[in-house]
Design a binder for these strands. Structure first.
Length: 514
RNA sequence: GCGGUAAUAGCUCAGUUGGCAGAGCGGAAGCUUCCCAAGCUUCAGGUCGUGGGUUCGAACCCCAUUUACCGCUCCA
């Protein structure tokens, strides 16, 4: 475990040192849980996005993409449930330093009154045996009536406070009913505070006419509200999917573990619309397809597992996570959810617009069911980095740090290196780059010894190094040096493009998915 | 958000009792060099996270703040 934490620290340093990930606003002491991608990070991230996007839109003729705006009508977040769900009233106990959801504390108190009533009933039932009249007992026993009255009064006050979003009342209820902290047993409570997990801003330049809008906490809703637009203009027939890549924002209370949990992050989501009743078989199918997409990267099947949800969210009737073994344990990278017709129906209700599909085969209209696949780009980035980071001890006892990135994802595809920086070798190297730069991200380096240059490329995951020596000027051949094996191969210059094109193509990954 | 710990060069870190700001690695320029971090020369980089305070004097002590890590807590 200590070794793994060590690895994680090294990974974070490596990301910084080699231009993959920087803390945001670093010269101003940083901004909590916000990170920037550097010159190599952005290439890797773009390649990950392309791998996902093409796997959705090229491999599936019934999946199309959109790019919806980050700002959306505020009512969308009422329809989606985020306005309610992202507003938990929290209260701290000053003695135990524990934090609780105020509404949960009160609900537990209501449950306690119920318990008391049930216990009285049990006791009486035992005592009176067959002669026990439950209805009679409930309506006459003084202890039952007292608890029943308290329960109802509490329930009424609680409902009113919740409805009014009155945080002071919530706290007063906790004090009045003498609710204690389960840990410390004291009633030494802080104020009730609300943590809005959505970022809000104002749209409209004048203060009185301004409308409160949110930065989207997920990209999915942009797909749902465009369902009809895409279905009609694209002449889409169910089943079909809509894919989207974009930024989302959450005001996380605890944002930690590097880019694993950020306040501004990027999602790749695909919502797949199906006939009601067929959703679970599609759910199973997408589960399998998505797992293949991960495993095709070749990091090892043992690094992945499903985590099926037992407790389902209010909108789902099946849900699973694809977890990846990060340096800090198995963590969720992707979620696959069967969302039923919750979202589209909710938007029907809130917008007053009919959102249905006429199915010519069934000769009827319905609100489609939805299978969602949702993957965090940044988490995927972290999983790729941690799976690729490698410290190898070589034969001579030296250690080399090498990023064994899949060639298709590598930020730099090849480095072109003149063995020495004279005798026309640099010029030859430049000429080779000029012929390859339209197809591949190339890097030129003539500084330091050849070995040192190889190691520099290893550290950023460049899969191929092309070395120009004196013979090159005569025989027009170069050496290709492979990152992972460090083996070398002599090939003619005309063949380089073909060799590398084949090895960096995403086709090789996609072929493993079918 | 609470509690604890920490912050010194791009990275990893040292810095004695409060008394001149340091090392290794890395980077840049030059020389050398025909294949895996070789060698030599030179150079750049720091308001010691930030802001106050104590002191003749603060990287070091005190207060506040920011950021990160660990533990709580939360996670539609």
């Amino acid at each position: 475990m200590a070794q793994q934490e060590d690895l994680f620290k090294k990974l974070v340093s490596h990301c910084k040192e080699y231009g993959f990930v920087f803390p945001s606003s670093e010269i101003y002491d940083g901004l909590g849980a916000v990170y920037d991608y550097g010159q190599n990070g952005v290439e890797l991230k773009n390649n990950i996005k392309k791998y996902w996007w093409d796997s959705m839109t090229l491999l599936n003729e019934n999946v199309v993409g959109i790019d919806s705006a980050i700002f959306m009508h505020p009512t969308i977040w009422k329809a989606s449930g985020h306005v309610d769900a992202f507003n938990d009233p929290l209260i701290d106990n000053k003695d135990s330093k524990k934090r609780y959801r105020a509404d949960v504390l009160i609900e537990e108190q209501i449950a306690r009154y119920e318990d008391k009533i049930n216990k009285e009933v049990e006791k009486a039932a035992k005592k009176f045996g067959d002669a026990f009249d439950k209805a009679q007992f409930l309506s006459t026993n003084p202890r039952v009536l007292e608890n029943q009255a308290k329960k109802e009064e509490l329930h009424t006050r609680f409902a009113k406070a919740l409805n009014d979003s009155n945080l002071e009342d919530l706290r007063q209820i906790i004090l009045d009913y003498e609710i204690v902290c389960p840990i410390s047993g004291t009633r030494n409570w802080t104020e009730v505070r609300q943590f809005n997990l959505m970022f809000a801003t104002e749209m409209g330049s004048t203060s009185d006419g301004a409308m409160k809008v949110y930065l989207r906490p997920e990209t999915a809703q942009g797909i749902f509200v465009n369902f009809l637009n895409v279905q009609k203009t694209g002449r889409m027939k169910i089943p079909f999917g809509i894919a989207q890549i974009g930024k989302a924002f959450r005001n996380e209370i605890v944002a930690r573990q590097f880019i694993f949990r950020m306040r501004e992050f990027e999602q790749m989501e695909m919502q797949f619309f199906v006939r009601p009743g067929e959703e679970l078989s599609w759910f199973a199918q997408w589960k399998e397809t998505r797992m293949k997409w991960h495993k095709a990267l070749g990091f090892g099947d043992h690094k992945y597992r499903f985590h099926d949800h037992e407790k389902l969210a209010h909108y789902a009737n099946a849900a699973t996570d694809i977890e990846f073994e990060m340096p800090f344990g198995f963590k969720e990278v992707e979620g696959i959810h069967s969302r039923t017709d919750f979202d589209l129906s909710s938007h029907e209700k809130f917008s007053g617009k009919k959102i249905q599909y006429f199915d010519p085969e069934l000769n009827s209209s319905y609100v489609p069911y939805v299978i969602e696949t949702s993957i965090g780009v940044d988490r995927m980035f972290l999983s790729v980095m941690s799976a690729s980071y490698c410290e190898e001890v070589l034969n001579d006892g030296e250690t080399r740090v090498v990023l064994k990135l899949p060639a298709a994802l590598a930020p730099i595809k090849l480095a072109v290196l003149p063995l020495v920086k004279k005798d026309g070798l640099p010029e030859k190297a430049r000429a080779i780059i000029d012929s390859l730069k339209f197809d591949f991200n190339c890097q030129y380096d003539e500084k330091d010894s050849i070995g040192k240059r190889y190691r520099r490329q290893d550290a950023i995951g460049t899969p191929f190094c092309i070395t120009i020596d004196h013979d090159t000027l005569n025989d027009n051949c170069v050496t290709i040096r492979y990152r992972d094996t460090m083996e070398q191969e002599r090939v003619s210059i005309e063949k380089i493009s073909g060799i590398i094109a084949d090895k960096v193509s995403m086709k090789n990954l996609f072929k493993q998915m079918v």
